[in-house]
Design a protein around this nucleic acid. Sequence first.
DNA 1: AAGTCTCACAACCGCGTGGAT
DNA 2: CATCCACGCGGTTGTGAGACT
Length: 299
Amino acid sequence: MGRSPCCSKEGLNRGAWTALEDKILTDHIKVHGEGRWRNLPKRAGLKRCGKSCRLRWLNYLRPDIKRGNISADEEELIIKLHKLLGNRWSLIAGRLPGRTDNEIKNYWNTNLSKRVSDRQKSPAAPSKKPEAARRGTAGNGNANGNGSGSSSTHVVRTRATRCSKVFINPHHYTQNRDPKPSSTCSNHGDHQESKTMNELLLPIMSESENEGTTDHISSDFTFDFNMGEFCLSDLLNSDFCDVNELNYSNGFDSSPSPDQPPVDFSDEMLKEWTTAACSHQSAASNLQSLPPFIENGIE
DNA sequence: AAGTCTCACAACCGCGTGGAT
DNA sequence: CATCCACGCGGTTGTGAGACT
C-alpha cells in the first residue's frame, strides 16, 4: 500500500536549488506570503514539489535565519534541551532564534551527540568549543547517529493525553499521606494544584477508612483525572531530580503497566514556554531564562 | 598531483496530526 | 463521525568539499 506521494515527481527538479529558483521562491513568498505550499510551485512557476519549496524556505531562504557558527551558549542550550526533550528538534529550534530544526539536528548528529557521549564516559573532560569540533576533529562519521535515546537521561514527552490515568495504591498513599504538599510537588508559590489533588483524594481515602473496611480498597484502583488540572505547574517548577518519583509523587504508585510513560507534558505548555523565550535577544539570555527544571535538574 | 576517505549540511522521504468538509 | 488534505516533524540519504595518504 503506502501513502500516495505528496505530488507527482514527473518533470520536477530535484537536488540542490539554483540561485534562480531561490529568487523565484523568495520573490513569490514576499508577495503572496507563506502557506499553501502544494500549490505554490505552480503559482510561482517552479518545477519543484511544494514540500521541497517549504523546506527550502524554512531552512535556508527565510530572512530571519541566522547563518554561521553555533556559539558556545547555543551549544550548551541545545545539549540541555536535548536532554530534556529528546529529538524534538522543532521545539529545540524554537528556543534558538534564527536556527532551524534541520540545522540543529545536523549539528547534533555531526558534533554534539558524539561529544555528549564522550562527556558521559569521562565527565571530567572539558567540552570542546564548537569550531574545534568541526571538520577533521569531531571524528564522527556516523550519519545515522541521530542521538536518539542514549544521551537522553530524563527525556520529557510532551503528550499529556497518555497520562490521563494514574494508578493509586491506597495503602501507599495512606502511609505517606502528608497534609502539607510534598517537596517534590510543591513549594513554588502557588500550591493550588497540590491542594486540589489532596482535597480530591483525601475524602476518598477517609471514606474508606471511616467505614472501617480497608478490604475493599486493598487492591489498586484506577483514577481518571486531567493532568492539566492538577500537576502542570508543579511539573514546570520541579527540579526533575527524579522523574519517576515526581511522576507519581505523594505516594502514588505508578501504573503496573510497564509501558506507562514517565512524564507527559502538554505541547501547549512547552510551546508557550518556547514562544515566550523567543523574544529574548540572544542564546545567552535564553539560557538564563530557562526554567528551573533545565538549569537544576538535568546534569 | 591524484585518488580515497571523512565530514557537514542540504534535501528527501514517510508518517503523524489537526483542520476542513 | 468519517474522510481528505495540507502541513509539520524527525529520520535518512546524497553530495560537495576539505583532509589525508
